[in-house]
Design a protein around this nucleic acid. Structure first.
Length: 866
RNA sequence: GCGAGAGUGGCGGAAUGGUAGACGCACGCGACUCAAAAUCGCGCGUCGCAAGACAUGGGGGUUCGAGUCCCCCCUCUCGCACCA
């Protein structure tokens, strides 16, 4: 043992360094966790999947937590008699590899492969029940080639097309930037002002499935409600109207502006019309007006993210154009406004400041009219100052809509627009089609060839996969794939003329939108083996971070529907059950000159201060672990010091898994002690021969221990089912305390009861701490079965029944005493017992009892009048 | 800005509307030990000698009874479409 591992009493010490590799090898040799692509037999199936990791280089303690959660489920389900599929792979394409290539001159493929090798080795130390024969990485041509086939299928089926869309362009680095790489309107590396630039890009038509993706949420009963709510809001179905406003004079060849609104009832409250900066009419104005051009250019420096656009100060430019009101004899100014999104609705809105907060902020800034047209019932003379009124009420100042409620007025307004031929009721979606083109070289190449004669031509299936070249150069700025001297130059598959490959790659979300289907039969030469997916899909339990609540999960749901339509899978919903776990956090440490320190560089003192090499250290808040703040804990170091079981136990013990957990040294040591304790308890019964009294005749303390054992069986099973691993662990502590307490006592059947209790402890703890469970079980049952192959325990109902209950007695809802009663005692018995209690009798003296509330076995409450 | 969550002792947390603080960590006292570690026992929300009172971010409400349900507010976290 090295100096960092706590000392152990030598005689019955458990040495994880020897035991953990031994049992990992034993599981491997027995093929415990292998699954068949198409299993025979009648066992129910259970597909357990954790979101696959990005191979950043090292496993993170958050990974340990994520995979430990999945492993507990997988091992428990196996014990409960399921065929379990529990695979692992790598989400291996993405920006970090390209950044490493640019910064350090390494080959992204080699960098990624090295990271995978290192992370696989670390993950294997954790002792997960994974079928490693199914492992793949999304950067394997065998994988991304199948992805290219899927894309061509989607394209043929009309689910993909090309159109223009805006990107963040860094003019210095000559590259497209992700939103997170745009900081205050500038490129994160170059510092150059970012421009919006339009590119022709591929889109997948996720909006074709909007209605279905929304409806499908109602079937996902084993998803967290909040994730379903977030997806519902993201899809954002709204009912409203499209209507055309006529310009008072045609301009730039346009004489109308189409507007989408969810509030046609407030049309009479209009005070302006606003265009998105990239609206065609705005462009027409800019063509003749340099100020408008400057304003639009300014808006485009905001970046493309919704957060940036919506939190920017509201600004506008008055075009001088005017539109006629559809119903009233009035006209209104047309503005260009930075908060109107071209991607939503029609890219133009009518502004009704009294009843929309953004419109109100805008109107106040530019001194536009604010006309109230909805009067709330409790404030008929409402005056709007800085807060728009968005509630229900009666329509006023609105001609033919006067007197109606909001809902009726909406349909009445739509009917009127329709009859005049200037508008219709429409259903609109917030959800936009999914732009999948990325100007990156470390991704799946889009299998398309551009020919001047034939246009965009699919790469013939015989030429798939379109492989990435092995010799990319990152010396120049820009897309390395585009700059490769030969790769993009090919002949058109249709006409044979010289043509160019598409040099964009797929969004990495495409890679993660179908890997779960591939895992069902990862070596097949079609994208999926349909029979295998029909057996294993959907994933019964999917586990990952809440940060994926919307995008990844929505894209995967869409992809699965598209694959179903085209016959690649047999289901619409990929994930029947979803669990979202919290992050692992740690304090951060900084020196006074502002540089970050790793936890092991810091010495903490009992008075709460900390130093490093004698210098004062500032202890920061608990934060998500990140490399930049150096507040990371390396799981391989933890495992080396305390063992995989202790690491697994700790990441599950301290905290409900959906919440963030703080990594603490003391917690890890506590976990280590419990692992030792399990082995020590096994040791304490190892020499005992089961005594003569059969278990079912156990009395006194032996029966009490048996009750504790069976309560633990029921409690742990229930807690694991409900993902309350911290509660399962509390139940296991209770059982181990009960075993401890039974030591040295005498009762009929106690020895047998202790053996039963230890056996239960081992087997109930095994999904969480599988190595010591095997070691302890082997100590008690040498040469028999692996715990990994044993069935789950079930509690005996007779031992779960309590003999009596302690019932609380309240007076006016305040606890005044407790009484001991037989289970199921009736109200009269309970009241009599309560009255016999001196404290209660005293408290009730001189008061009139108005009401007695008796909930059997729960509570007795007296309502009194003085 | 918009959307979604969370908030309980020194700390992590437990609690089908029914005895708030299970279980663990830390801490204190004691046993064992030459000593330390490990282990075992006892204690541990606040105030109070006690009886008791007060306590689940703050304020209101529903209820015989609220950590739990409803309304308002505060703080923190996550997502916002090219990070994964």
């Amino acid at each position: 043992m090295d100096r960092n591992t706590p000392d152990l009493a030598p005689d019955y010490a458990y040495d994880f360094r020897i035991a953990e590799p031994r049992w990992q090898a034993a599981w491997e040799a027995a093929g415990c966790f292998r699954a068949a692509d198409k299993p025979e037999g009648t066992k129910p199936k259970c597909y357990v999947l954790e979101m696959f990791p990005y191979p950043s280089g090292k496993i993170h303690i958050g990974h340990v937590r994520n995979y430990a959660i999945g492993d507990v489920i997988a091992r428990t389900r196996r014990a409960q008699g399921y065929d379990v599929l529990h695979p692992m792979g790598w989400d291996a394409f993405g920006l970090p590899a390209e950044n490493a290539a640019r910064e350090r001159g390494v080959d992204p493929a080699q960098w990624t492969r090295n990271n995978i090798t290192a992370m696989r080795a670390d993950l294997k130390l954790v002792g997960l029940s994974i079928d490693w024969s199914r492992e793949f990485a999304t950067c394997d041509p065998e994988y991304y080639g199948q992805e290219q086939k899927l894309f061509l299928d989607f394209w043929r089926a009309g689910l993909a097309d090309r159109r223009e869309s805006a990107v963040n362009w860094d003019p210095v680095d000559m590259t497209v930037l992700a939103n997170e790489q745009v900081i205050d309107g500038r490129g994160w590396k170059s510092g150059a002002l970012v421009e919006k630039r339009k590119l022709r890009q591929w889109f997948l038509k996720i909006t074709d499935f909007a209605e279905d993706l929304l409806a499908g949420l109602d079937t996902l009963e084993r998803w967290p409600e909040r994730v379903r709510t977030m997806q519902r809001n993201w899809i954002g179905r709204s009912e409203g109207a499209n209507l055309e406003f006529s310009l008072t004079a045609p301009f730039g060849g346009l004489d109308t502006v189409k507007v989408y609104t969810t509030r046609p009832d407030t049309l009479f409250g209009m005070s302006f019309l606003a265009l998105a900066p990239d609206h065609p009419l705005a462009a027409a104005v800019a063509a003749t007006n340099p100020e408008a051009t400057a304003f639009i250019a300014d808006c485009q420096s905001t970046g493309t993210s919704e957060a940036a656009i919506e939190s920017a100060e509201k600004r506008g430019f008055d075009t001088g154009l005017r539109v006629r009101h559809p119903f009233a004899d009035a006209d209104y100014p047309v503005w260009i406004a930075n908060f109107v999104l071209m991607d939503y609705g029609t890219g133009a809105i009518f502004g009704c400041p009294a009843h929309d907060q953004r419109d109100l902020d805008f109107a106040r800034k530019y001194h536009l009219d604010v006309t109230v047209v909805v009067a709330p019932a409790d404030d008929p003379d409402l005056a709007v100052a800085d807060v728009a009124y968005t509630g229900d009420g009666v329509i006023v100042h609105s001609g033919f809509l006067d007197g109606l409620d909001v809902k009726t007025a909406k349909s009445r307004a739509i009917a009127e627009l329709t009859s005049r031929g200037i508008g219709t009721g429409v259903v609109n979606w917030r959800l936009r089609d999914w732009g999948i083109s990325r100007q990156r070289s470390w991704g799946c190449p889009i299998p398309v060839i551009h020919c001047e004669v034939c246009g965009a031509v699919p790469v013939p299936e015989k030429d798939l996969p379109v492989r990435l070249p092995a010799d990319l150069s990152f010396e120049k700025p820009g897309n390395a794939l585009d700059q490769h001297p030969t790769w993009k130059h090919v002949n058109c598959p249709q006409c044979g003329a010289a043509a160019l490959r598409e040099t964009d790659t797929f969004d990495t979300f495409v890679d993660s939108s179908w890997y779960f289907a591939r895992f069902c039969a990862p070596h097949t030469t079609t994208p999926t083996d349909v029979a295998a997916t029909k057996h294993w899909m959907p994933v019964d339990q999917y586990i990952g971070g809440i940060e994926h609540a919307i995008l990844h999960l929505l894209y995967a749901r869409f992809f699965t529907r598209a694959m179903h339509r085209l016959g690649h899978v047999g289901v619409d919903e990929p994930f029947a059950g979803l669990f979202t776990q919290g992050m692992v956090t740690h304090e951060s440490y900084k020196t006074e000159d502002g540089s970050w320190l790793y936890p092991d560089e810091v010495i903490k003192h009992p008075d709460g201060t900390a130093t490093s090499n004698g210098r004062h250290v500032i202890i920061g808040p608990n934060e998500k672990m990140s490399k930049s703040k150096r507040n990371t804990v390396d799981p391989s170091v933890v495992i080396e010091r305390f063992g995989a079981d202790a690491a697994r136990w700790f990441t599950l013990s301290d905290n409900p898994p959906e919440r963030d957990v703080e990594w603490t040294e003391a917690g890890a040591q506590g976990a280590f002690r419990f692992v030792q304790r399990v082995y020590r308890l096994a040791w304490s019964v190892a020499g005992d021969i089961a005594d003569a009294t059969p278990l079912d005749q156990a009395t006194g303390d032996a029966r009490k221990l048996r009750q504790a054992t069976h309560r633990a069986i029921a409690g742990v099973s229930e807690a694991i089912d409900g993902f309350a691993f911290n509660v399962a662990i509390a139940r296991l502590y209770e059982l181990s305390n009960a075993i401890n307490d039974s030591e040295g006592k005498t009762a009929a059947g106690l020895t047998a009861a202790r053996c039963e209790a230890v056996d239960a402890l081992i087997r109930l703890a095994a999904p969480i701490i599988p190595h010591v469970a095997e070691e302890a079980y082997a100590l008690l049952n040498p040469g028999t079965e692996l715990v990994a192959n044993l069935p789950w325990l079930t509690a005996e109902p007779d031992l779960l029944r309590r003999d009596s209950v302690t019932m609380a007695v309240q007076i006016m809802g305040k606890l005044r005493g407790t009484i001991e009663l037989a289970v199921g005692a009736d109200a009269e018995t309970a009241i009599a017992a309560a009255m016999a209690e001196p404290k209660i009798a005293q408290a009730l003296a001189g008061a009139t009892i108005v009401k007695r509330i008796h909930v059997p076995d729960r509570i007795l409450n007296f309502v009194v009048r003085p």
